[in-house]
Simulated scan of single mutants.
Amino acid sequence: MTSMLDCIASALVIAPHPDDEVLGCGGTMMRLAQAGAQVHVAIVTKAGADRFGPDAAATGRSEAREAHAVLQVAQTHFIDLPAAELDRVVHADMNAAIGALVSNVAPDTLFVPFIGDVHLDHQLTFLSAMVAARPRGGKGPLRIYSYETLSETNWYAPGITPAFIPNVYVDISDTLEAKVQAFNCYRSQVKQAPDERSPEVIRALSCFRGATIHRSAAETFMLIRQIE
């Protein structure tokens, strides 16, 4: 039986901030890379010195490159829009920046944050990614999946705002430790349990998601669109 991962030759993971990609689909990224797929990551925002400190942007880039080396990412792309201020960016400009990257990479599969995440940067990134993924002229990604991000996807108001209800599960039993190792590369973001951005809680969610499909660990997604 052919799995969803077997169909992916080139994937682009769009992350609003450094570490979202690892939290959302680090184990899946590793599985894809091990299977020979080209995995690209786009980090949409850069930490501004006035809001996050003079070294925050350089730290984020360095940590991202280290984490992506662990996960065998083919290429990391930095779009450098202002973190926590995407609502101040002209939306057409954001659409153009993400659209240009999607066009250049030309992935067959796109992984995007969930529209119902509490962080406005995540919501706006999702919207611009969907604009970029429009199948005009027969082009565009064949598959689009939304991933869940600890401390963002579950902190809005399910029942009032969109709820993350997974319908795609990826077994990451063999790549969970690589996911945790990659997250630990984001030293500026690692917290102590029971904070959700801790290795222990990352493992806990992965094991819970896995248990629902009788696997040791899993990452979950919502299928947004699939073209066959």
Rank of each mutant, 00 (worst) to 15 (best):
D108C: 06
T161H: 12
D20I: 09
T153I: 07
V131I: 05
F208T: 10
A217I: 04
M94K: 08
A133Y: 01
N167A: 09
D55F: 06
M1F: 06
K139V: 12
E177I: 08
P194L: 07
M30T: 12
I98V: 12
G137D: 11
L32D: 02
F183A: 08
M4H: 04
C7H: 13
S216L: 13
I98K: 01
A217H: 02
L120A: 14
A178N: 10
R187W: 10
L101S: 06
D195Q: 13
A9F: 08
V13L: 12
E228R: 11
R88K: 15
E177K: 08
L110M: 10
Q181T: 15
D20Y: 09
D121E: 13
Q181E: 15
R225S: 13
P16M: 12
A96N: 10
A157N: 12
V44Y: 09
A47S: 15
L127A: 12
F126D: 00
F111C: 00
F52G: 05
S173I: 05
I43C: 11
G159E: 08
A37Q: 01
I224F: 04
D117R: 07
V22Q: 05
R209M: 03
A106Q: 12
Y169F: 11
R61H: 07
Y169L: 03
Y169Q: 04
R197G: 05
D19P: 08
G116Q: 05
L205A: 06
S206Q: 02
S146L: 00
T212Q: 14
N104C: 09
A57P: 03
S128L: 07
A96P: 04
I227V: 13
D174P: 01
I224E: 06
V170L: 01
V70S: 07
Y169W: 14
V73D: 00
N95E: 13
L81F: 11
A204W: 10
G26S: 06
H77Q: 03
Q192M: 11
P194E: 06
A15P: 03
K179C: 05
A57Y: 08
R209L: 04
T76L: 06
T125R: 02
V44H: 07
E196H: 12
A74M: 06
D19L: 10
P82S: 09
A47K: 15
K46S: 15
L176T: 04
N184Y: 06
A11Y: 03
S188Y: 10
A67V: 09
A204Q: 10
R209S: 01
A178G: 04
P194D: 06
L150H: 02
M130S: 02
F114C: 01
G210M: 04
L86D: 04
A74V: 05
T109A: 15
E148I: 02
I160A: 14
Q123W: 05
D87V: 12
G53Q: 12
R187Q: 15
L5P: 01
R65G: 00
